[in-house]
Write a protein that binds this DNA or RNA. Structure first.
Lengths: 206, 206
DNA sequence: GTCTATAAATAGATAGAC
DNA sequence: GTCTATCTATTTATAGAC
């Protein structure tokens, strides 16, 4: 069945399935070995395809990586976006901490993908860091300063407050191996939320 | 001048200089690209040597990496080792935070070397993580629990307290690019120490 | 000790059959 | 769409001259 004369055909089911499989495989491999440490062959095998077959869907290794990174960047900033200037300040900030911790729990690979990229100097997302990311953070810092001025939360450095939320929550995804090695049998996330809630409550309450 | 008949000759000045240069170059390259993303050629060039010449000093790429990692592991745990069970608890813990932050400021490459290794699953130092590292941390957690029982600091989860010190301080080294991109002109370390001191004071005081 | 040359393996990407 | 075969470049490591 042909629908119209449009030259751009819609994706077949098999194409969709393969693209999804490739993205999932690429996330797994890139998040573990970083861009340079990963090979197209690894990704193809992980996706259940041959190397040339994978390259039928994506033009190059870099293309897969870039698409993955840019697609995930939006999702990654959602939790911060959701922080509401009109909500109850301490609740809003602790809610943000919770959402970030949930991301570490449910999407550790995505976290490690970004961690690898940034530790290695962020060659692919430098622009976004000092562009859209900085802009979003700066906006939220205005809100935090307002909360401080209104006496709703303690007087802390807004940017460093946000850095501390990032580092504390992402640590459980990025350094998962270390955390689990040190904890032994205890599950990290069993007590992380309680600890972080306690920490930010004590830090922020006036 | 020959001293005795010992077959193992001491290193010449030139050998010492080259070994030092190789270690420095390897630290720079490995900390930026991770083990798999780094090449011997890069390290050799950075050290001002040819590739075969570098391999005259070290048998393989892995040998350089392993030596580097194991040598630095001790140094890396010094700040925690120095924490004194008989000192004033809040001071001791905040002192530990300060020393870790100083490491991030003065040895960011070492921090990123470990970060890369651990994010990528710690294939080379798994044993140390659940061995000597876990042991040291567990010992210090006993001390922390004692301080809590004595009412000297607030009741917090000892392991997560240590994780939070690691993540908050190392973040400034590992995610340096992101931190600077977001802060703009402001130097991260200008306010990090004040912020972290404030954070841990509020968290720990009874 | 340091170099050139090179072996051997691997990696990214393409050609062309089916 | 997927495969085999292959090209080209890169990478680890070694051989052997100087």
């Amino acid at each position: 069945m042909s629908f119209g004369s449009k030259p751009e055909r819609p994706e077949t089911r098999i194409q969709q399935r393969n693209r999804v499989a490739i993205r999932a495989a690429a996330l797994k491999v890139f998040s573990t070995f970083g861009y340079r440490g990963s090979t197209v062959d690894q990704i193809a095998t992980e996706a259940g395809l041959s190397k040339p077959n994978l390259l039928y869907y994506f033009p190059s290794k870099e293309a897969i990586y870039r698409e993955l990174l840019e697609t995930l960047l939006e999702t990654w900033l959602d939790p911060l976006n959701e922080m509401d200037a009109d909500g109850e300040p301490v609740e809003e900030l602790i809610g943000y901490v919770r959402r970030k911790l949930d991301m570490s729990r449910n999407f550790p690979r995505e976290s490690r993908l970004f961690a690898n990229e940034i530790i290695q100097g962020a060659p692919q997302i430098e622009t976004e860091l000092s562009g859209s990311l900085k802009q979003l953070v700066d906006e939220k810092c205005v809100v935090i300063r307002k909360w401080i001025a209104e006496g709703k939360i303690a007087d802390v450095h807004p940017h460093h407050l946000i850095f501390s939320i990032w580092s504390l929550t992402q640590h459980y995804a990025d350094f998962d191996v270390q955390v689990r090695a040190v904890l032994g049998k205890e599950d990290p996330f069993d007590n992380a939320e309680t600890y972080l809630t306690q920490l930010f409550t004590r830090l922020l309450r006036v």
